[in-house]
């Protein structure tokens, strides 16, 4: 049984870490950002239920968007709350993943 991981991006030159890909590292302006797998454990910092989506997400609502803080490193990330949001609240343990499009998703820790 392995603890789940989520892919972030880390600069091989300066160690700067981002939750999104960038061509150029904002830490050192080098071009050495590489995928890195980090523990996917996080804590839900906030959430909202989007009832009036933007046109790019038309037909998908209502859906929940959350902000979680990674247990390792303490960085905030935003993402769609996947699966059962029932029972999730500020302070809930969550697990981060990426969907097929590479977007971060947030789900209750231990949920399948």
């Amino acid at each position: 049984m392995h603890d789940p991981v989520v892919e972030l991006f880390e600069c091989a030159a300066c160690g700067h870490r981002l939750s999104h890909f960038a061509e150029i590292c904002p830490g050192c302006l080098g071009d050495a950002l590489r995928p890195v797998a980090v523990p996917a454990a996080a804590v839900l910092e906030s959430w909202t239920l989007i009832r009036r989506p933007a046109p790019a997400h038309a037909g998908a609502g209502p859906f929940a968007v959350g902000v979680a803080r990674l247990a390792e490193g303490g960085q905030l990330v935003s993402g769609r709350i996947a699966g059962e949001a029932e029972g999730l609240g500020v302070g809930s343990a969550v697990t981060l993943a990426r969907d097929a499009g590479g977007r971060i998703t947030i789900r209750a820790a231990g949920a399948g």
């Binding site: 909202t48 989506p53 933007a54 993402g79 500020v90």
Partner: peptide
């Protein structure tokens, strides 16, 4: 934006925090 956030959503997040 890719997560589906809107401006009312952003301030919903701020409020809950």
């Amino acid at each position: 934006g890719a997560a589906g956030l809107t401006y009312p959503g952003l301030f919903g997040l701020v409020w809950q925090a």
